[in-house]
Design a protein around this nucleic acid. Structure first.
Lengths: 184, 184
DNA sequence: AAATTTGTTAAATTTTTATTTAACGTTTTG
DNA sequence: CAAAACGTTAAATAAAAATTTAACAAATTT
C-alpha cells in the first residue's frame, strides 16, 4: 500500500465522523453542505483556502464563500493568514465546549430579548384594557388568564438568561464537570 | 366599546407575544407558521380543533394537520378529548421549562449517539491503518493527530450526555434556580 | 344504506432556499 | 500598465420545502 492509498484510507476512516458532524449540525442551524465543510476542516490542523474547499467538496467557489460566511457567523471557523499566500485562509475552531456555549448562549439570549420585549408590550396593552370601566366579565377573565401566563413565562425567560450566564461564566462545569476518559 | 371590540383588543395585545414566539421558535426547529400556531394555542386554556386552527390562521386543513404533527413531535401540544365532539382536540403545553428540557435533551442525546458511533468506527479504522508495517511517516502523524482530536471530542460528547441527564433529572435547578419575580 | 363529517394522503402548485454560472471590482504580479 | 488572481455580488438555475386543492378512507349520523 503506497502513501497515496494510505492517505485515502485515512480519509475514508475520517469520513464517518465528517458525515455524522454534517448530519447533526442542523442543531446549529446550518445545512448539511455547510456541516460537511466544517467536518472537513475539523480534521485539518492547517488552514484552508476557498479554492481548496471547492476542490475538496466539489462545489463552486461562491458556495464556499457563503458557507464560510455562515460558519464565521457562528464562530466555527475564523480567518487567518498564511505567509506567502494571497488567499484568505480559514481554520476551524475545534473546541466543542466553546462552540456549544457560544452558539446556545447567543440563541438563548436572543430568545430572552425578543420575548421579554413582546411580553412587556402585551402586558401594557392588557393592563390598559383591564382599566376600562365597561369591561365584559368574560373578557376580563380571559385577560387575567393571559397575564397569569405571561407572569409564568417571565420566570422562564429570566431563568434562561441566568442559564446562559452560567454557561458563559463556566459555572456550569461545577455542576457538570468535563469527564476524564480512559482509553482502552 | 362592546364585547367584540374588547375581545379584538385583547387579541391585538396578545399578538405581540404570538409573533415573538413564532419568530424565536426556529430555535426549536420549526417554521414560523408552526410557531404561530403554537403561539395562538398558547393563550388558550381550552382545546382547539383542526377546523378552528384553519379558521384562526387562515390556512388549509392539511396544513394544520401537518403543523399539529410537528408540534406533537416535539411535545408542544397534545391530543385531548372533548365530550360531545367528534373532532380531534389539541391543547398546548404551557410549561416552558418542560419544553426546553424535553427538546434540548432530545437533540443533545441524538448528537451524542450519532457522533459517538461514528467516532468509534473511525477510531477502529485508524487503528487498523496505524498497525500497518509500511506506514508513511507523514500519514502516521496525520492519523495520530486525528486520534487526538477524536479523544478530545469524546470528552465533549460524554459531557453533553451528562448535561442532558442533569437537565432531565432537574439537578440543573440547583445551580440555576427558577427566579421569583416581583410584579410592579 | 346513503349522505355527511373528519382526518389524512397524493398530486399539483407556490414559495423559499441553495447552488451555479457569469460578471464585476480590487489587488497583486510581471 | 496589462494580465492574472482573488473574493464577492448579481442573475439564472436547480433543488427543496411549504402550502393548497383534490381525492380518499374511515367513522358517524340520518
Amino acid at each position: 500500500m503506497d502513501k497515496k492509498e494510505q492517505l485515502e484510507a485515512l480519509e475514508k476512516a475520517r469520513n464517518n465522523v465528517v458525515r455524522s458532524i454534517a448530519e447533526t449540525m442542523d442543531l446549529y442551524g446550518v445545512t448539511p453542505s455547510v456541516g460537511k465543510l466544517y467536518g472537513t476542516m475539523y480534521f485539518r490542523n492547517k488552514s484552508m483556502s476557498l479554492d481548496e474547499m471547492k476542490d475538496e467538496l466539489g462545489m463552486s467557489k461562491p458556495s464556499m464563500s457563503t458557507a464560510v460566511k455562515s460558519l464565521q457567523e457562528i464562530d466555527m471557523i475564523k480567518k487567518t493568514w498564511l505567509k506567502g499566500s494571497r488567499r484568505d485562509q480559514f481554520v476551524s475552531e475545534k473546541d466543542f465546549f466553546k462552540l456549544f456555549i457560544q452558539y446556545f448562549c447567543k440563541m438563548w439570549e436572543r430568545e430572552v430579548k425578543i420575548n421579554l420585549n413582546a411580553i412587556e408590550d402585551t402586558r401594557t396593552e392588557i393592563h390598559t384594557l383591564l382599566s376600562q370601566a365597561d369591561l365584559d366579565e368574560e373578557v376580563r377573565e380571559e385577560a387575567e388568564y393571559s397575564l397569569t401566563l405571561l407572569k409564568e413565562s417571565k420566570k422562564y425567560y429570566y431563568w434562561l438568561s441566568d442559564l446562559a450566564a452560567n454557561f458563559r461564566s463556566g459555572q456550569i462545569f461545577d455542576l457538570v464537570p468535563i469527564p476524564e476518559i480512559e482509553e482502552e
